[in-house]
Design a protein around this nucleic acid. Structure first.
Length: 462
RNA sequence: GGCGGCGUAGCCAAGUGGCAAGGCAGCGGCCUGCAAAGCCGCGAUACCCCGGUUCGAAUCCGGGCGCCGCCUCCA
C-alpha cells in the first residue's frame, strides 16, 4: 500500500510499527463553534482511510482529540457571559454545546466514532509533567509566568513543513512578543488572566498551550510513535511542526511515521473559513441533502486536492448518489435484500483494492463502483436473478460500506398514500390515465416519485 | 520575500512516458399509455501558452501566464 507522506513530500510504502496494527491520531476540533463543510471533509476523509485499513484487516486504534480550552473558547465565553466571574462556567457550557453539535453532525454523516476522544482538560496533570520535563531538558523556558518552547533547541525544526527557520523571518507576520526569546517560540503553558478558566501549576494558575495537548494525548493514548497522524493541511505549520518538536524532545523517538493532510474546501477558489464568511455549516447542508450526497461530493475529489464547493456541485453529487441508490433499491426488489451466501468476488473488489491502495484514491474507487452499478443494472433490466447478479449486489454493498455510505433503508409509506397508489393501479387497469396521472402528480407533491415497472409500480422518495 | 499546490470536454474529476477513466448535464434510440428509472449509442484530433528531451508527452525538462494556499487562530 502506498501513502503520500507530508514528511518528505513523497509517496511511500506503508509499513506499520506493529504487524497488522495501526495507531492513528487525527487532530479534532476546537469546541467554540459549529462545524462547516471543511471540518466535514477532514473527518470524512479520515473515516474512509480508517474504514479501508480495517477492511484490509488492520486493527486500527483511532484517536481524535477535542480542544476544550483555548483562546477562542474563552473569547466566546467572554461574549456570552453576563459577568466576569461567569466566564469559566460559560466556557464549560460552550464546550459541551459544541461537542454535542459535533457528534450530531458527524453521526449524521455516518462517520465512525473514534476509539478514544481525549480532551485537553482531562490531561492537565500529564501536560504539566510534560512541560516540566521540557524545562528540565532545557528546551523550554519561563517568561513571566508563560512557558515557551525554544525552537532553537530543536535542530530539525521545519522538517515537516519544509521551511528553514531563516526563511520564516522576512515578511512574515510573526508577532514579536516581548516574553519570547524568538518570535517562533510557542507557548506550552499560558498564565491566566483574572476570571479565565485555569489550573494550578508550578508556574502559577494557567492553562496549556494549544500544541502541547496533542503531543501529550497522543503519547498517553497511543504511545511514543504513531503510524498515522492526520489533519487539514493548514495544520502542517505551525501546529504539527510544533508537535514534532515537543514530542521528539520529550521522548527522543520519532513522533510519527506517516503524516497525512487533507486539502481544503474552497468557495469560488478561496478557502472556506470563518473570517471570509464563506462557510457552509454541516447542519444546514444536512437539512437539505442526504448525508450520502455530501460524502459523495467529498470522495469524488482526491483527499489532497482542493475541493471547490458550490451548491450546484452538491446537487450533481446528489444525482450521482441517486444512481447508486436506485441500483440498490432495485436490487433489493428484484434480488431480495440481505446477504446471500458468499459467492466468488467480482473483479470490482480487486479493482477497488488496487485504486485504494494507491494513496486512498476515492475518485477512482467511485469509478469502480459506477462500473459495477452499470453491469448490475444490465442484469436488473433483464430481471435476471443469476448468481452473478447476487454476487455483484453483495460486492456493491461491501464497497459502499468501506467508503462509509449508509445504505438506503427500507421505508414504508403512510397508509393513505399506499391506498392512493392502489387506486392508481386500478385506474391504470381501467385505462383511466387521467385519474392515474392526477394521482401520480398528487404523490409527487408529497415527495413520492412513482415508477411503473414490469414488476409493478414502485415508489421512491424524491 | 520564502515554501507549496492547482490549471484536462458545458460542469465536476481521474490519468504522471505509449491510442484521454468515471459522474452530472446534453443529443439520438429501446422500453413505457405517458412518464420515471434503466439499457444501447454519441462527445475533448486533444489536456493554460511557448520552447526542449524522446520513436512517442496531458504526463519529463526549461521559460511564461493565470488562480489559490501556508508563513497568523484555522479541518
Amino acid at each position: 500500500m502506498i501513502v503520500y507522506n507530508t514528511l518528505g513530500r513523497k509517496r511511500e510504502e506503508f509499513k506499520t510499527l506493529e504487524k497488522g496494527k495501526v495507531k492513528m491520531y487525527v487532530c479534532g476540533v476546537t469546541l467554540y463553534d459549529e462545524c462547516h463543510l471543511g471540518h466535514g471533509r477532514a473527518y470524512i476523509v479520515f473515516d474512509v482511510i480508517r474504514r479501508y485499513l480495517e477492511w484490509e484487516g488492520y486493527e486500527v486504534l483511532y484517536v481524535q482529540n477535542f480542544t476544550d480550552i483555548d483562546d477562542k473558547i474563552i473569547n466566546r465565553a467572554k461574549e456570552e457571559a453576563k459577568s466576569e466571574k461567569e466566564i469559566p462556567e460559560k466556557a464549560r457550557e460552550i464546550v459541551e454545546r459544541y461537542k454535542e453539535s459535533y457528534f450530531r453532525d458527524m453521526d449524521a454523516l455516518n462517520i465512525k466514532r473514534a476509539d478514544i476522544y481525549p480532551s485537553a482538560t482531562e490531561f492537565i496533570p500529564e501536560i504539566i509533567v510534560a512541560v516540566e520535563k521540557l524545562l528540565k531538558k532545557g528546551v523550554a523556558y519561563s517568561g513571566n509566568g508563560d512557558i515557551y518552547f525554544s525552537v532553537d533547541k530543536f535542530p530539525s525544526y521545519g522538517k515537516l513543513s519544509g521551511r528553514k527557520k531563516e526563511e520564516l523571518m522576512p515578511g512574515a507576520r510573526v508577532e514579536p512578543e516581548e516574553k519570547k526569546k524568538d518570535p517562533l517560540d510557542f507557548a506550552l503553558w499560558k498564565s491566566a488572566k483574572p476570571y479565565e478558566p485555569c489550573w494550578d501549576s508550578p508556574w502559577g494558575k494557567g492553562r496549556p498551550g494549544w500544541h502541547i495537548e496533542c503531543s501529550v494525548m497522543s503519547l498517553k493514548c497511543l504511545g511514543e510513535t504513531l503510524d498515522i497522524h492526520g489533519g487539514g493541511e493548514d495544520l502542517i505549520f505551525p501546529h504539527h511542526e510544533n508537535e514534532i518538536a515537543q514530542s521528539e524532545s520529550l521522548t527522543g523517538k520519532k513522533f510519527v511515521n506517516y503524516w497525512l493532510h487533507n486539502g481544503f474546501v474552497t468557495v469560488r477558489g478561496e478557502k472556506m473559513s470563518k473570517s471570509l464568511k464563506n462557510f457552509f455549516l454541516l447542519r444546514e447542508l444536512l437539512n437539505q441533502y442526504p448525508p450520502q450526497a455530501i460524502r459523495f461530493l467529498i470522495l469524488s475529489t482526491h483527499y489532497r486536492n482542493p475541493l471547490d464547493f458550490d451548491l450546484a456541485h452538491l446537487e450533481t453529487a446528489l444525482r450521482g448518489w441517486k444512481r447508486i441508490e436506485e441500483c440498490i433499491l432495485k436490487s433489493e426488489e428484484i434480488l431480495g435484500g440481505g446477504k446471500t451466501g458468499k459467492l466468488e468476488e467480482t473483479k470490482y473488489i480487486q479493482e477497488f483494492r488496487d485504486v485504494m491502495r494507491e494513496d486512498f484514491h476515492t475518485p477512482q474507487a467511485l469509478r469502480v463502483i459506477f462500473d459495477l452499478v452499470s453491469e448490475l443494472n444490465r442484469y436488473l433490466s433483464r430481471g435476471e436473478k443469476s448468481p452473478e447478479a447476487f454476487s455483484l449486489f453483495n460486492d456493491l454493498k461491501t464497497l459502499l460500506e468501506v467508503l462509509g455510505f449508509a445504505l438506503p433503508e427500507k421505508l414504508t409509506l403512510p397508509p393513505h398514500l399506499e391506498k392512493l397508489i392502489r387506486e392508481r393501479e386500478e385506474a391504470r387497469k381501467r385505462k383511466d390515465y387521467q385519474t392515474a396521472d392526477r394521482i401520480r402528480e398528487q404523490l409527487l407533491r408529497e415527495g413520492i416519485l412513482l415508477q411503473d415497472t414490469p414488476r409493478g409500480t414502485v415508489w421512491r422518495k424524491k
